[in-house]
């Protein structure tokens, strides 16, 4: 399993040709209490950088962008009734979307865990 990160604080955790997308623990802490997550429909094709989901905290709405291109193969239905799962376990049960990757080479442009940790410490 490979995990990569974006500068917008999305993660993608890749197993085989499927990537699970969510927001990082840093991002959920910045957003505060999540009250709603708008998810795409299964089957939708997303281009890298396209809006994949919208996460609403008490304070504001934020877009979640697809870190890479692919087709939506699953969305996390649990978030509909329990959006706070994003706060409780952003990197685990609080995932948003599973994508079938179109081009795994797109992962090369993303940050590794160490690079992301360094990035977060540079901005916080």
């Amino acid at each position: 399993m490979t995990i990569r990160y974006t500068r917008d604080h999305e993660y993608i955790s890749v197993e085989g040709d499927t990537g699970t997308i969510g927001i990082t623990d840093y991002a959920q802490a910045q957003l505060g209490d999540v009250v709603f997550v708008e998810l795409p429909e299964v089957g939708k094709t997303l281009a890298k950088g396209q809006e994949a989901a919208v996460v609403e905290s008490v304070k504001a709405a934020s877009e979640v962008f697809a870190p890479v291109s692919g087709e939506v193969v699953a969305v996390n239905g649990e978030l509909e009734s329990a959006p706070g799962t994003v706060n409780e376990d952003a990197a685990g049960r609080g995932w948003f979307v599973k994508l079938r990757l179109k081009d795994p080479a797109e992962l090369d442009g993303l940050m590794t865990e160490a690079q992301y940790a360094e990035y977060v410490s540079s901005i916080s």
């Binding site: 505060g32 209490d33 009250v35 905290s57 008490v58 304070k59 706060n87």
Partner: peptide
């Protein structure tokens, strides 16, 4: 302070 560690909903 926009929120303390417990978060907006708990404070509300």
């Amino acid at each position: 302070p926009v929120q303390y560690p417990t978060g907006i909903i708990a404070e509300h």
